[in-house]
Design a protein around this nucleic acid. Structure first.
Lengths: 205, 205
DNA sequence: GTCTATATGGTGATAGAC
DNA sequence: GTCTATCACCATATAGAC
């Protein structure tokens, strides 16, 4: 269904654990953390719920693992895709398209990672996720800063600008569905072009 | 804590019902719908949980009521605040500021309304909320359309533009906290100005 | 590694006294 | 309008056989 699946193999290389993570991600996304029972997960995998505890200490650990893996994949993706491009506008667009690709490939998975990490109770894990998210945003800020330095963008509030774009992308994960008219990547690209260009008409010569 | 509270009185005029709604809103926002038990709500109000059922048929009705009241208040607020202004840019900004005011005044309350309405199972209520949200977005689209017609904005994708601004506002409800450096209204205003102006420098004369 | 069986506790909701 | 008492259910998690 998407190439985020293989990354799950990083979680120990165990195939059954991978299955549990994958099915859990779908269920968490569809029904929420509390709305998903261990019984639901077991049924989706095709085992009994007690068997899950052979691989994960508890339900929270499943969720935590999903969030970290998803954020790791997201960060890799956006970094890779913008690298090599010259113009800052193109780099921002590539960044956004990569984010959108991650949403499209792993809608349920992403959803949990980006929006549901509040469920993480463990303080250490929470801090780690926060750090990952900060690093992710900082990557976009760096691109925008480069654009200003190159004279391609005006002197603007970098933090605000990065936040505006990421807000559009994160919110998109809430409403976008694969069966819609436009692909996630197209919408992301349109957002970026609209925001970079602004609403104002060309000045009259 | 905010002037959304009086609107609760529309819910029958009963003071105890109002208390239940207010405390529930806070708890839903803090811990989620599933993460909030009838016991939690009762304790916050200072009654026993069985008493809640004298005012509301079930837990879902409490949530549904909160969502509808919040969206009603939000729609009134954004409509009122932009009326009378002339320039489309000012009207968009007033719209966004009003939305931000609603977030600031009733952060927990708003949160539930804007982001948690997925919890609504009842199809009729769900449709109603969807209609209210559509009406809300359409109000912003109307302002942008006016701006294009007046030549103040260029010919742009109105739906996308409205969605971009609302994405920023909705996402802000996720991360903004009253003790931060900037007020919600200031951030909303900055978002709008940034997006309307765009990232590009003035053309060299 | 997977199972059956079960411990333990919290949940939404109801009955009925006052 | 608020209470006590309780029901029926489902949750997470564990024990221990195979």
């Amino acid at each position: 269904m998407g190439n985020w699946e293989p990354t799950f193999d990083a979680a120990g290389g165990n195939s059954r654990a991978t299955e549990i993570l994958r099915e859990s991600a779908k269920l968490f996304a569809a029904n929420g953390y509390d709305g998903t029972s261990m019984q639901d997960i077991a049924a989706a995998v095709g085992i009994k719920k007690a068997s899950i505890y052979h691989f994960f200490a508890d339900k929270a650990e499943i969720h935590r693992t999903i969030v970290v893996l998803s954020l790791t994949r997201l960060t890799e993706l956006v970094q890779d895709r913008q690298r090599g491009l010259e113009r800052a506008a193109d780099r921002v667009e590539a960044f956004a398209r990569a984010h959108a690709q991650h949403i499209a490939e792993s809608a349920p998975f992403y959803f949990t990672a980006a929006l549901g990490y509040n469920e993480i109770i463990d303080p250490a894990a929470k801090a780690k996720v926060q750090r990952m998210r900060d690093g992710y945003e900082e990557a976009l800020r760096g691109i925008i800063r480069d654009g200003i330095q190159a004279g391609e963008f005006r002197e603007l509030d970098v933090k605000l600008a990065a936040r505006a774009i990421i807000s559009c992308l994160n919110w998109m994960a809430r409403w976008w569905r694969p069966d819609g008219a436009d692909s996630a990547e197209k919408i992301a690209s349109d957002y970026v072009k609209l925001i970079i260009r602004g609403f104002l008409p060309d000045p009259i010569e």
